[in-house]
């Protein structure tokens, strides 16, 4: 399988002010490297403040990276949307979290779908209308919806329209930024299944961003977990849940509210969540997770661990898997 998108040591800092030592930066994305294979769904999981949305927005061109590279089919696309070619904009599309604000309330659905159709496929008039009806059919909405305004339809239907808009340019990759987190579970099920069906039908690659672990388990091929701008762990979806290695991953999985005993057994029991994610302006030294980590050692606050391969396709960024772990002693439970 071919690599469609690759991030190499990607960083995105925002300047938030200055103090005596000079400018103060918010390090939203801080050295992230990963690859997305053609046709897969890479799940990117993190809490708010983890930088997952900034990473997604940088990939689609809302921001220019501070450092590192984004390669799309081998071509460096680390620039803002203004500077990207139309051919590139056609290839990468995004679906935002809140369908309420991603669809202009003053335009009809026909007009909303018409914009990418005219820009990327040059369709106008009757041809555009036919293509828009075809898009609506793809997301199982009737043609009458062309004349409706987004404010007159339900949240799930709005998100379906937003998906249809993203697909209008016939992209090869779609970034999904929490596409179902504003929706009810019964609607969520429909959207997720539709996304999976569309992926097969149109041979799409998804970068699926979410904070919801139980959703990502059911859509992703591989899952990457992000904490304070860095990746902690990356593995195949099933392995990620069955053999989580990073203490943060275990903490997250054990915090998920579940509805069956079968799921309860999957949860790593010991790890009780504690503390909160610190501000990305003041990232803790060493491993950024160490203040909340139940398994931390003295080395953790000093040295930032490297990403290491623990099993085929399974990467972890934790000192327990680096050579320095054996030389150090566990500090044990504190606080």
């Amino acid at each position: 399988m071919a690599v469609i998108l690759e991030c190499r040591d990607l960083t995105k800092y925002f300047r938030v002010g200055r103090n005596k030592q000079g400018p103060v930066y918010l390090r939203a994305v801080d050295g992230v490297s990963f690859e997305v294979q053609e046709g897969e769904t890479l799940g990117l999981v993190g809490e708010s403040g983890s930088g997952k949305s900034t990473l997604a927005y940088t990939i689609v061109g809302m921001y220019r990276p501070t450092g590192g590279h984004i390669l799309f089919r081998g071509q460096d696309i680390g620039m803002e949307a203004d500077r990207r070619s139309m051919a590139l904009k056609k290839e990468i599309q995004i679906v935002f979290q809140d369908p309420g604000s991603s669809l202009n309330p003053r335009r009809t659905i026909g007009q909303i779908l018409g914009l990418p159709l005219v820009l990327h496929r040059g369709l106008r008039g009757a041809a555009q209308e036919e293509a828009a009806i075809e898009l609506l059919r793809k997301v199982e909405l009737p043609p009458e919806y062309l004349l409706k305004s987004p404010s007159s339809i339900g949240g799930g239907e709005k998100q379906m329209v937003a998906i249809a808009r993203a697909l209008a340019s016939e992209p090869s990759m779609v970034v999904l930024d929490e596409p179902t987190s504003a929706l009810d579970v019964s609607v969520q099920a429909k959207i997720i299944n539709k996304l999976i069906a569309l992926q097969r039908e149109m041979n799409l690659t998804y970068l699926f961003i979410t904070h919801d672990l139980s959703v990502i388990r059911n859509v992703a091929t591989r899952i990457a977990i992000m904490y304070l701008g860095r990746l902690c762990e990356l593995a195949q979806a099933a392995e990620f849940f069955e053999q989580p290695e990073h203490p943060y991953t275990r903490m997250l999985i054990s915090s998920v509210p579940v509805i069956s005993d079968e799921e309860e057994r999957l949860k790593p029991k010991k790890v009780e969540s504690r503390g909160e994610i610190p501000s990305p302006v003041n990232i803790p030294s060493g491993c950024s997770f160490h203040p909340r980590c139940p398994e931390r050692a003295s080395v953790c606050s000093k040295v930032n661990p490297e990403m290491v391969l623990v099993r085929p396709g399974h990467y972890v960024r934790c000192h327990q898997f680096t050579s320095c772990w054996s030389d150090t002693k566990k500090v044990g439970e504190i606080g």
Binding site: Q188, A189, D212, S214, R217, N218, A237, E263, K267
Partner: peptide
């Protein structure tokens, strides 16, 4: 409709 962490689709 609730997604499960044991997988198996929704």
């Amino acid at each position: 409709s609730v997604p499960k962490i044991s997988g198996g689709g929704i």
